[in-house]
C-alpha cells in the first residue's frame, strides 16, 4: 500500500493467521470461518479473536474477584520456635519496610500491588474504549496493551519468593515457613489476567475508524 490509502487485511478480504501471520484470502460467503485452519501452521483462523470482548470481561472480573482473597488470607505463615505468625501480602510488605528492607519491600509492592491494579485498570480502560472515543490516541492504547502484556507475568515474583522461603527456611522445629491460601488465589489471578490480555484483540481498537 503506497501513499495514503490504508486498508486493513479484513477490508481487503484477507485473514491473517494470529500465530504465524500467513495471509489467507477469504471469500465473502465464507465469512463463517470458525472451522478453517491455517494452511501453514494449523492454528484456527479468525479475522478477529472470537468473542474477544466477552471473554476479556469474564476473565478480568474473575481476576479482580480472585485478588480479594489473595489480599485477605495469609500468603505465608512463619514459625519461629513454634510461634506462628501469619502475613498477608500487604502486612508482609509493611513488615519488610519496618525492617528497613526498602528495596525488597519496593519490589514486592510493585509486583504484587501496583502491577495487578494497573493491569486491571488498563484492561478495563481498553474494554471501555473499544466502542467509545477516548482522549488517548489509539497508538498509545496499543502501546499500553503491549506493556501490560509484557509486565503481567512479573507479578509471580511474590509467589516464587514465598516458595523459596518455604524451601530454604525449613529447619525442623527451630523455624519454618508454610505457604498460605492467598498464594493460590494470587497465582490464579495472575494466570487469569494473562489470559484476559491474550484473548483481547487489539485490532478491535482500529475497526471503527470511519
Amino acid at each position: 500500500m503506497s501513499g495514503k490509502d490504508e486498508i486493513s487485511a479484513r477490508a481487503a478480504g484477507f485473514v491473517a493467521c494470529t500465530i504465524c501471520g500467513k495471509l489467507h484470502r477469504i471469500l465473502q460467503n465464507q465469512l463463517d470461518i470458525r472451522y478453517v485452519r491455517c494452511v501453514q501452521c494449523g492454528a484456527k483462523l479468525h479475522s478477529r479473536k472470537p468473542h474477544s470482548l466477552q471473554r476479556t470481561w469474564a476473565l478480568l472480573l474473575t481476576g479482580i474477584l480472585l485478588y480479594v482473597p489473595a489480599n485477605i488470607y495469609p500468603i505465608m505463615i512463619t514459625r519461629d520456635l513454634g510461634r506462628p505468625e501469619e502475613n498477608t501480602i500487604i502486612s508482609g510488605i509493611i513488615a519488610l519496610w519496618n525492617l528497613d528492607a526498602y528495596l525488597v519491600a519496593g519490589v514486592i509492592f510493585v509486583a504484587s500491588v501496583v502491577v495487578p491494579i494497573m493491569k486491571f485498570l488498563v484492561i478495563l480502560y481498553l474494554l471501555l474504549s473499544v466502542h467509545r472515543k477516548s482522549p488517548l490516541a489509539r497508538k498509545q492504547k496499543v502501546r499500553l496493551y503491549h506493556i501490560t502484556e509484557f509486565i503481567g507475568p512479573w507479578s509471580m515474583v511474590d509467589i516464587f519468593v514465598m516458595a523459596l522461603l518455604v524451601a530454604l527456611v525449613n529447619m525442623g522445629g527451630i523455624a519454618s515457613v508454610e505457604p498460605g491460601m492467598a498464594a493460590v488465589a494470587f497465582a490464579a489471578m495472575v494466570g487469569v489476567t494473562m489470559l484476559a490480555i491474550m484473548v483481547f484483540d487489539p485490532r478491535l481498537l482500529w475497526d471503527n475508524e470511519r
Partner: peptide
C-alpha cells in the same frame, strides 16, 4: 478466487490489521 496481489508480498499488522507491502 481473485488473486491479483500475490499474498506473500503482503503482511497484515498483528496489532491493527493494516496491510503492508513487505
Amino acid at each position: 478466487m481473485d488473486c491479483r496481489i500475490p499474498e506473500h508480498e503482503l503482511i497484515a499488522c498483528p496489532g491493527c490489521d493494516l496491510l503492508h507491502h513487505t
